[in-house]
Every structure is written in structure tokens, then in C-alpha cells.
């Protein structure tokens, strides 16, 4: 489904959380309440960066039960395509923006006997919302949070107050790390595992859990690839009869949208499968960056996820 009904919002507050992270507050322009959501949900923020329209997903970190505003914490990524840089440099209180309604690809399994949450760095944001939710509805949970240092550990104070003994913090600069083997072999039956953070950490947790015999259905992770910048390329869209140029800082999906062609999307992070597009002709190499396609689908070269993946070569024709 592509035609999301965008919500007109005003940036009501911008807070510097630490030297890398800013928190943005959004209120409805018409003064009403924003839609309720579930912990783990994200919104897609539209950024009109000069000529270029970016749409980037960020987790909602505020309480799902407080719909007077939405809050997102965004870590500045100096190597990225510029979405976080735009937010950090250009977005000021009072600015009008558009956001999508919330969607959740990292929801709690509410049947769980216990929720075991593991966060690394900025991966804490969905857990801030989920812990607010569980505080209200009840449910056993604990959070293991790895940070670089006390200074760069965002929201440690909030979490300490909210979770108390259920919060376990690990500081890199004190050579502390989570003992995943121990943690994942001592959980009661019916526990569900949630992990969000840097890719190496997610991979380590998933490998440990699978190796220890955790069934897939009890494992949940938020693995948003961020679209990376890359060499410009050209794509022909057969159904629309249009050829688009994809710029260095632009994703293929954004280039398709910039040509006025409506394409489905949900997560814009290579995780949900909605934007999957058939490749009709490819003289060159598909640079897959998603977490959606299976290995055999990648090697077959017949599908691409245009929200994060790119192309290098002479000719690319898509069924779009």
C-alpha cells in the first residue's frame, strides 16, 4: 500500500540528548491528537532537502499512550546519505513537516511469559516505547543495554527510574559486555527475545540464541538497513515507460518517487518486503543491501528492494 495519508506536523521541540543524539518532538498542525501506536512502531519522516525529497524511518520512543506528541531520537550519521545530518542541521522548532502514520514491524508478542530486551546504542529507542507500554499494561520484562560510556548512554536516567532492577547496563569504556551465552541459557520457557542495535550485535545475539536452541518464533529483531550512498546509476521503468537517474545520495525508491511514480513501501529499510520489485533485465550487478530477499533470490537476480539496494553496470530494467 503506497498512498499513506501523511500527517501534517510541527516540530515542537528539539533537544540535544548528547553530542551525537538529538530528540525531535512533533505535534499535529491542527492541534489534535496524533494516532495511538504500539511500542516498536516507526514513522517515516519526509524531508524536503533542497531539490531532494527524502523519506526516512525512525522509531517512536515516546509513550504509545500519550498521543499529544511523537518523539524520535536521531543519531547523527556523518557517513550516511544525509537524512540524519539534515535533521540535525536544518530542523528547528516551529518547522512544518510531514510524517507517515505509525507502522510496526517490531511489535511485542503479547503472549510472552517474559520479554527479554537487548539494546545497543541508539537501538534503545523502540524499547523506550515498549517499556512505557508494558508499565501500563503489565507484563514481565527486563532490558540489557550496552552503551559506549555513561556520557553517550542515552536515557539511562529515564530507564533507571522506570525499570530499576530490571535494567542491566554495560559500559564499553569499562570493558563491560553482555554475556549472551549466560543470558540466553537462563530464561524461563515462554520468554520472547527482542534485539535492536548495531548489525554486529544483532548478528551475535541471533547466532547465540539459535545455537542455544531458541525457536525462531521467539526471536524478534529490528534490522533496519539504512540506505547507503553509492555511485549514481540509471534504471528503466518498463510499466511507466520512464528512465530515472539515481543520484549519489538518493535511493532507487526515492528516484522512482521523484519521477512521480507511486511505489509501495512500508519500512524503507529493507526489512518489510513491500517494495520488492521484479528485475526484467540486468546487464551488471545488483548491489543487495536488504534483509528481505533469501540468498537464492539474490543469486537469481530477478528481484530488488529499491528502498536500500543499488545497481552497478550498463542496463537495469524494472517492472514498475
Amino acid at each position: 500500500m503506497s498512498n499513506h495519508a501523511a500527517i501534517d506536523v510541527i516540530v515542537s521541540e528539539v533537544v540535544e540528548v548528547n553530542s551525537l543524539i538529538k530528540r525531535f518532538h512533533f505535534k499535529r498542525r491542527d492541534g489534535g491528537h496524533l494516532p495511538a501506536f504500539s511500542g516498536g512502531a516507526h514513522i517515516v519522516i519526509e524531508m524536503q532537502d533542497g531539490e531532494q525529497l527524502r523519506r526516512t524511518p525512525y522509531s517512536l520512543m515516546s509513550s504509545p499512550l500519550d498521543t499529544s506528541d511523537y518523539q524520535c531520537s536521531i543519531r547523527r550519521d556523518d557517513e550516511g546519505r544525509g537524512g540524519s545530518l539534515y535533521m540535525h542541521r536544518e530542523v528547528k522548532p516551529g518547522m512544518a513537516m510531514k510524517i507517515s502514520p505509525p507502522a510496526n514491524l517490531f511489535a511485542l508478542d503479547l503472549r510472552a511469559r517474559k520479554h527479554l530486551m537487548i539494546a545497543g546504542g541508539i537501538g534503545i529507542t523502540p524499547f523506550l516505547a515498549q517499556s512505557s507500554q508494558l508499565e501500563r499494561t503489565g507484563g514481565e520484562y527486563e532490558l540489557h543495554y550496552g552503551v559506549r560510556s555513561a556520557q553517550l548512554g542515552a536515557y539511562l536516567d529515564v530507564l533507571q527510574e522506570r525499570l530499576q532492577h530490571r535494567l542491566h547496563t554495560y559500559y564499553d569504556d569499562q570493558q563491560q559486555s553482555i554475556d549472551f551465552d549466560e543470558l540466553l541459557s537462563t530464561q524461563p520457557a515462554g520468554t520472547h527475545l527482542y534485539v535492536c542495535g548495531p548489525t554486529p550485535m544483532i548478528d551475535k545475539v541471533l547466532n547465540t540464541a539459535r545455537g542455544a536452541g531458541w525457536p525462531e518464533s521467539h526471536i524478534h529483531f529490528e534490522h533496519f538497513a539504512k540506505a547507503s550512498p553509492g555511485e549514481p546509476f540509471t534504471a528503466e521503468l518498463s510499466a511507466s515507460g520512464v528512465t530515472v537517474e539515481v543520484g549519489r545520495e538518493q535511493s532507487l525508491l526515492e528516484a522512482i518517487e521523484a519521477a512521480g511514480i507511486e511505489a509501495p513501501y512500508l519500512c524503507r529499510g529493507g526489512a518489510c518486503g513491500q517494495c520488492e520489485t521484479r528485475v526484467l533485465d540486468c546487464d551488471g550487478e545488483l548491489l543487495h543491501e536488504d534483509h528481505w530477499l533469501e540468498d537464492d533470490e539474490r543469486s537469481a537476480g530477478e528481484k530488488i528492494m529499491p528502498c536500500v539496494s543499488r545497481f552497478k553496470g550498463k542496463r537495469l530494467v524494472l517492472e514498475r
Binding site: 500500500m1 498512498n3 499513506h4 495519508a5 494516532p35 501506536f37 502514520p101 507502522a103 509501495p264 518486503g273
Partner: peptide, 13 residues
């Protein structure tokens, strides 16, 4: 089911 999983708030089908 692919269609239904993509049903989002404010966009009923």
C-alpha cells in the same frame, strides 16, 4: 495475506 499485512492505520481495505 501480503496485502493484509500491509494494511496500515488510516488506510482500511
Amino acid at each position: 495475506i501480503k496485502y493484509l499485512l500491509a494494511v496500515q492505520q488510516s488506510n482500511p481495505a
